[in-house]
Design a binder for these strands. Structure first.
Lengths: 378, 378
DNA sequence: AACTCTAGTCAGGAGTGTTGCCCAAACTGC
DNA sequence: GCAGTTTGGGCAACACTCCTGACTAGAGTT
């Protein structure tokens, strides 16, 4: 992209952006503080604050400085800048939250759905919670959706893959939510959101290339390369059910088929029976050891493929049975023998990892939407 | 990254950038033409041209417009803006080229190296060709290196992986070339460069997510996600020798071991014996069919892993035996039966694909280095 | 010879950011 | 209680960039 054409207007909007950015970071500031933070001169900041206040983006909070010196006025972002909608869709139910530009939740609703979930049911629940959450605030400026199924990148629809369990079902969050929104909808897989949350939680240390392996009722994985989740052309990157691995007898079988062989699937479904798996592993005896060894072998086959293709600095393991201590230990031990070994660790974020990643994205997008709005409409 | 601090100087440098950019695209332009192209007003362009000419970045070519109207002066980039060094390192030998900001080769040298290549030999040859190429131009402003071995991302060193053939050997192009350069060195694997060239050749149609599978003496692959080659944390993404696939008897074996089983490796090496492979495939008879089927099965196991992990829109196949018609056909046929099938096609660029990708990068970097140089030193 | 066309320049003006100075108001110390 | 200090804010002057519109120069065209 060529840099923007130089013009005075560009300069001015850049100044406004800096001022808004400062107030996004700091909540409330006087004009002098903004000037000190941004390095922009006081008169310029004063002018920018005047413009932004007139435009309704900033507000004099009424608070005044105390202490030495002349009293100053604190300015802050206007409280009515709109909210972002954060949505989590899982087979158990639907959650919706409204978040303001400060990152504070202004509303939260959830609704459970009986299993197996029918798509119309989920859609209806989704619509309902979103409406309730936005009842007080009006249309949301954007929405970020986490869904427990593969998501088509272009359309945002939940899609079904062969031999993968369809947990939620055919559903288009974009269409369901369209009328409640005044902006874009971002839909992605829950594992991808969890990976983003994990990256954010890793702090300033750069966790730019890693893999988040999700081992639960479904089998999934998120690939983070150069600091971003990579979704592939259709959004289906990381759908590892069909990766060949080493199954019973040393045969090459698809990852998902290992669980059929081990009789760890739910009836009439390709979804894993997690309870059965965990109890099989927890029972003492040779049988449990065999199962553990088979699982570790299969998982490590997948890990070796992930390592070969993406060269991660770390493999994060999440999901109900992947983080089970015995499983994790068995997998780690086996992984250490791989030709290219990679550190393994359980996910750090365990409570609502996907939703927390989606929240962070929603906040970033909402702030960007506010601070980069060039061209104020008269 | 927060946007640059607004200032008058920023505006001016933006104008200069636009002017330089226009002359990078168009070779020679009059001030009026620059104004028309960039949308900047004539007086401003005139001022910018004056500045840049004084700084030595632009030059009045002496050419004048003909036709109706007042004669105008053509300006062009100064001819002494420096060159980029493009280097290709392969087991057969070393190539070096010097390229100017117009993308024209001003010098080219190559030197063959006997096989097996010893690292010191290669380093010496590299140094020699680079010196010869830069003899007339002085230090290069940057270098782009393509190497036929895995490259460590942080250091740019060629590295050895277990069970992968070390074609060139322990070598640090950065150190070898350091004294000939006045800028950064970019080192990457030849397959990655070939993939970039392939992407560039695909034209305006967006080929943003694909996989370049290289099947030659070595086995490699490049992963392009969201328009960029993804190298992984250490630069070893795509080193697929150890991906599990289906070998003889349906057993799960590492990709590279399939060739040991098929006796298609060179003696005392993990490198493939390409000649033997091709003749085995070309001989008519059941034996050839068996070999073909085994190869197709093994390759498709790897492809299914690549597809699962990266979800490419396309798999490009390159390399000496991968593009052999019989092999390609067998692989395509087998790949169509995969649970998630993906189009396959041979590489479009067949002559020096890696070098051509490296050239494009060198040109882009060189132009960026010139056009974004803020702050002209007095 | 007059007209047309075009590259380049000049003059004036609008808009932006900066420096430096001053003022107002609150606290601090005597 | 009073002077000194400290701090946010405002004002004026200046420097700089870009733009518009008019103008000039010089060659081809009629």
């Amino acid at each position: 992209m060529p840099p923007a054409k130089p013009s005075l207007e560009l300069l001015r909007s850049l100044t406004d952006e800096h001022v808004l950015q400062a107030l996004i970071c700091e909540q409330r500031l006087t004009r002098a503080e903004i000037a000190a933070r941004t390095g922009i001169s006081k008169p310029t900041v004063g002018e920018s604050v005047r413009r932004l206040t007139e435009a309704g983006l900033l507000r004099d909070t009424g608070e005044r400085t105390t202490g030495r010196g002349r009293i100053g006025s604190y300015y802050a972002l206007a409280p009515d800048l709109g909210v972002a909608l954060v949505v989590g869709i899982a087979p158990e139910g639907v959650v919706a939250e409204a978040m303001d530009v400060r990152g504070q939740l202004v509303a939260r609703e959830h609704e459970e759905v009986g299993r197996p979930a029918r798509p119309e049911q989920v859609a209806q629940a989704l619509r309902a919670v979103a409406e309730r959450v936005l009842a007080d605030t009006g249309r949301a400026r954007l929405a970020v959706v986490s869904a427990a199924d593969p998501v088509d990148r272009a359309s945002g629809r939940l899609v079904h893959l062969p031999d993968a369990p369809f947990l939620v079902g055919e559903l288009s969050p974009v269409e369901v939510l369209a009328s409640l929104l005044a902006g874009p909808v971002t839909v992605d897989n829950d594992v991808n959101w969890a990976a983003r949350a994990e990256r954010a939680a890793s702090g300033p240390e750069s966790l730019d290339d890693f893999v988040y392996l999700y081992l639960g009722e479904g089998l999934g994985c998120a690939v983070v390369a150069d600091g971003e989740v990579r979704r592939g052309s259709g959004g289906l990157a990381g759908e590892i059910a069909h990766v060949l691995t080493r199954g019973p007898g040393g045969h090459a079988v698809a990852f998902t088929d290992v669980f059929a062989d081990l009789r760890l699937r739910q009836h009439h479904s390709t979804a894993l029976d997690v309870d059965r798996l965990l109890s099989a592993v927890d029972t003492d005896g040779d049988r449990a050891d065999e199962t553990l060894a088979a699982l570790a072998e299969a998982v490590c086959g997948v890990i070796s493929a992930l390592v070969a293709v993406t060269d991660p600095q770390l493999v994060v393991v999440g999901g109900a049975w992947g983080t089970h201590p015995a499983v994790l230990q068995a997998v780690s031990d086996r992984a250490a023998e791989l030709p290219r070994s990679v550190p393994l660790r359980p996910a750090q974020i365990t409570t609502q990892p996907a939703l927390s990643g989606a929240r962070a994205e929603a906040l970033r997008d909402l702030r960007a939407a506010i601070s980069t709005r060039r061209q104020q409409p008269t």
